[in-house]
Design a protein around this nucleic acid. Sequence first.
DNA 1: ATGGTTGCGCTGCAA
Length: 261
Amino acid sequence: MFTLATWNINSVRLREGLVARLLKEEAPDVLCLQECKSPVDKIPTEMFSQLGYHHMVARGQKGYNGVAILSRLPITDAGERDYAKLGHARHVAARMENGVVIHNMYIPAGGDVPDREVNEKFGQKLDFVSEMRDVFHADKPARSIMVGDFNIAPREDDVWSHKKLLKIVSHTPIEVEHLLAAQDAGDWVDVTRKDIPEGQLYSWWSYRARDWDAADKGRRLDHIWATGDIANAAHGSRILRDARGWEKPSDHAPVFASFDL
DNA sequence: ATGGTTGCGCTGCAA
């Protein structure tokens, strides 16, 4: 069995202490981070190693984006893809000894206006997700797990108000349509919703709320998917909402899943 | 209808 977590950390250097706390208290076998906002050589790997996470694959750039996969178990191969040719560090993949492939994705947020004619970033987001669809269609993934900050909340109960967010980037019908097409192309199962099928579920709360916890205007932007051949081995999904209330928090909470493999 | 916060890195941009 192994446990995996995904967390948009919003600067891995500023929040090195929070990552350490999560690794100590929750001890997942694998932790996938997004928005590291750091060149790879400045990621605090020494701390990871001291806590038993001796293996890492990462892609980085100064100030923006950045993804990393930390592991207690050996990583036998690594890969990456520059989706939508943005030149951003938004994807990294790792193959584990048991053959399971882990994809860590940071899909573009997409700006404020949900119209690619006036907002180039929105078009880039749709193109990014379309390329995910095409890649999975051409090369069907097997024994694979894909996690990350997808920046899309697909279900009505993935947002605090479906009606109020229909025109807000992250929950527009066209984004949801694109994400579901990518999911379908790879026969991906939404593991979090397989385990927690009912009810409101969020992984992100804006910094701008006066009291994020009381207002609870969240969205489920962070996801764990698995291919059908291993999705039935998944159980025990949860979102560590508490971490959103830690000192100087990320605006995202970590999402967990365990697999009997 | 609007403004609200944070991180990076140095002026505003991205989220």
